[in-house]
């Protein structure tokens, strides 16, 4: 198993923190992991993205040139990363904010109204967790339990009720 993932969206959508969570959870799950953020001026005001690799074998290159999976949280990210996905890879679209639809027939597209689901649960902030839940479920790269167990570790300052909402969001994402 090898999953090269790119997560992309606006700053403030929890793109980087989702990447760190995935890497942490992969480590908890016993996998090899790397996390690499876009940084510096690239992160000011515009779109944020990060690369995560979760693999059974030792990871050589931490650079994700051709992602196995891409999570797009906003429109500009769709345009930038959709063409890069490996054949037979997966595209996870937050349809609440992205209206473009992929014309590629060599990838699996998973459409999730993440903002809508997050708001139903209680806060927009956990839209990223909805996407993470779906990503982990569809790729099978790790146990969902590893992801849920890691939430409290990565967001150690979050209140218990928020952590609970994160767990619900991950599960809702997996179901959608």
């Amino acid at each position: 198993m090898y999953q090269g993932i790119i997560v992309a969206g606006f700053g403030g959508q929890g793109v980087v923190s989702m990447g760190i969570l995935l890497a942490y959870a992969g480590m908890v799950d016993g996998k090899h992991v790397t996390f690499f953020p876009a940084y510096g001026a690239e992160m000011r005001g515009g779109t944020a993205n990060c690369s995560v690799i979760v693999a059974i074998d030792e990871i050589a290159s931490p650079v994700v040139g051709q992602p196995d999976s891409v999570v797009v949280m906003n429109e500009p990210s769709f345009a930038k990363f959709e063409p890069m996905i490996k054949p037979n890879g997966r595209l996870f679209i937050n349809t609440s904010l992205v209206s473009s639809r992929s014309k590629r027939d060599d990838i699996e597209v998973i459409e999730i109204p993440a903002n809508k689901i997050a708001e139903e649960i209680g806060t927009l902030k956990i839209a990223n967790m909805v996407m993470a839940g779906s990503l982990v479920d569809k790729t099978g790269m790790m146990a969902q339990k590893s992801l849920i167990d890691s939430v409290g570790k990565v967001y150690s300052r979050a209140k218990p009720e928020i952590l609970k909402m994160n767990e619900v969001a991950i599960k809702r994402g997996a179901e959608s």
């Binding site: 890497a23 480590m27 992991v33 790397t34 996390f35 690499f36 940084y39 931490p62």
Partner: peptide
């Protein structure tokens, strides 16, 4: 370099 400085690993 920037990769090694910015990336996270166990």
């Amino acid at each position: 370099d920037g990769i090694l400085g910015q990336m996270m690993e166990p």
